[in-house]
Design a protein around this nucleic acid. Structure first.
Lengths: 344, 344
DNA sequence: AAATATTACACAATCGATTGCGTAAATATT
DNA sequence: AATATTTACGCAATCGATTGTGTAATATTT
């Protein structure tokens, strides 16, 4: 049953002795087509296995049904959940999702932006590469009214919609929690400081220390590049080797927090008695490590959904309002890794 | 600098007083265009910020630069790694990747296939939904020479390229390992038996039992639906509540294996002494659970890369050979959760 | 019954890039 | 010097769907 040739509306039109405009309109229930004709056209289309060529439609209408997503690495729990959210909303609205990874490289991000622009995506969801410090490659989208929504790792300077969490507040909250548990020397595993998420978390941490009368100590802040398990091990080792080691760690992500627990346990330290630990993200690993890891929950899927909704909203209302910054709630999740005092 | 209008080759052509064919050819270094003209065209194109409209090109050439990926859930470690591999290969070859999730639903898978076909993807990488038992929705791609490559969760009956691991051998190996550690009552956490991966793992398990003189016991095999943490807890509880409980578990995935360890530890059982556990996938959680989980490593990224390469290969050699089935190596990773005898 | 409105369709341009064919000029071949 | 070849470009059709405009035929209004 191999049918080399694709069926087009021309084929349908010819066979029914009507025009292509009639076929086109009949297929999408245009009011100016009579019910009998609609029926006939649809029936034949189905019979012949007609499949609309969305390329042609997109070209003609000058708009596609594709949402682009630019992220650093797909295979990170947070990111894949984010994409999942985008895809879920997109697909229910009839949009496709095309993804491209920057691998945290600025060069790649630029190249990806170019390709996505060439394929005339309807909108763009971006979480920035770690390296990126300049944002001109996003201007082409703005110039052509293609909505951009930044998510999580956003640009402060670039005017566009943003979906974020309050990293400062979350960092503050996590630190406050450790202080309330009686911790005095709280270390912080930080990320690249030109990325909002890591800088804000650190600033929240510092603000909390100050507010509660603890002196921030630069030697207790250590900066990671990618914050993976290996880096986490190294950073924790460094912290614990300090002449005056910390009694607790607030890590910018769960991966490193888990590493911290592993290193500490290996050295015979008790968690949380000797070292209280809190992470960030509420990845599934936080429930698997022993003791369970306290963390900040990060609504990844929701962020993806909302980002997609923002894109579509801008499509709907062409001359939309000014850029919106949507801040989602985070939640402090207290588990054993930091619980030194029993709850009331 | 807002430029509402998009620059097309017509604009370039008009400004240079040449034809669009010349512009088109100049931009892609066609031999019939003189070097001076090429230079002029390229310079102006760059100056005006020309970006090729790949929709138009795709329509005309009747081929896109997009590879479709159909998977069940993006936010699963194995799947996101798989996609990462696909994307990596695709992007270096100038292809985009569009993804769609079935959420393990047959209906969704059909709808996704339809949309992807409509967007005239160049090729398709598929890992089947759990529900899917019938494969007609893939026929449209075959009919129109769009290469399909199944990955991991493949269809046995549908003739197409497949990239898999030897699930039977891996199941056999995992079970043999437990037997060698002295386990006598080996339970198995299985998945849906119409999906090759789970059926083959179970068959490998049974074959190993038989080969080494252990009688397979149906009461020791329990079937999960989605094999998530919650199910894992329930299934393990059931197994351990058996009048004659198992001394070891081979789980079809790491998630459930980890749950098994958690449940067992909570009941005061020692791992591996009282219950040896081995999982499948080598997810990152396998290194975080205590004790570290033995497992079968599963080359997810490679599978994605190879799948993408197969798609592109078929694009290159139009009248390609028959369908290929590529089987990748797995590796038995022995960690503490199953190591009852010290290594030699 | 005349005028107006509605229904139901066809015509043809359009989106932007590609490409087979045609042609004039320049260069090479015999 | 006559012919063949190469170089360098233009013309116009094409991919498939959409859509503004035009026009009969029928229905509704006054």
């Amino acid at each position: 049953m191999k049918q080399r040739k694709e069926i087009t509306i021309y084929d349908i039109a010819r066979e029914l002795n009507v025009s292509t405009s009639t076929v086109s309109r009949a297929l999408k229930d245009h009011h100016s087509i009579g019910p009998a004709m609609k029926e006939t056209v649809k029936r034949l289309a189905k019979e012949r296995g007609y499949r609309p060529n969305s390329l042609a439609a997109s070209l003609r209408q000058n708009k596609t049904n594709t949402i682009g997503v630019m992220i650093a690495w797909i295979n990170r729990p947070f990111v894949s959940s984010l994409i999942s959210g985008v895809e879920e909303v997109a697909s229910t609205k009839g949009y496709n999702v095309v993804i491209s990874q920057s691998h945290d490289s600025y060069e790649n991000e630029i190249a990806n932006a170019r390709t996505l622009y060439s394929s005339r995506i309807a909108g763009l969801v971006v979480s920035l590469a770690m390296e990126t410090k300049s944002y001109e490659h996003f201007q082409q989208f703005v110039d052509h009214d293609i909505p951009i929504v930044f998510v999580d790792r956003v640009s402060e300077s670039f005017d566009a919609d943003k979906v974020v969490i309050d990293n400062f507040a979350a960092g503050f909250q996590a630190t406050q929690h450790l202080i309330e548990q009686g911790c005095k020397r709280i270390a912080h595993i930080a990320g690249a400081q030109h990325r909002n998420v890591y800088r804000d978390r650190k600033n929240g941490y510092i603000a909390a220390l100050k507010k509660f009368g603890l002196e921030p100590d630069d030697s207790l802040i250590i900066y990671g590049d990618i914050l993976n398990a290996e880096e986490g091990h190294k950073m924790t080792t460094h912290l614990l080797d300090l002449p005056n080691p910390p009694d607790s760690i607030f890590s910018s992500n769960d991966t490193s927090a888990v590493s911290a627990i592993q290193v500490a346990k290996q050295r015979g330290l008790k968690i949380p008695a000797d070292l209280a630990v809190i992470g960030f993200n509420n990845d599934s690993i936080s429930l698997i490590i022993d003791p369970p890891l306290s963390t900040i929950s990060h609504p990844a899927v929701s962020m993806g959904k909302i980002a997609a909704q923002q894109v579509l909203k801008h499509k709907e209302y062409k001359d939309a309002v000014a850029s919106e910054i949507i801040t989602l709630k985070t939640e402090l999740i207290i588990r054993e890794s930091s619980r030194k005092k029993s709850l009331v």
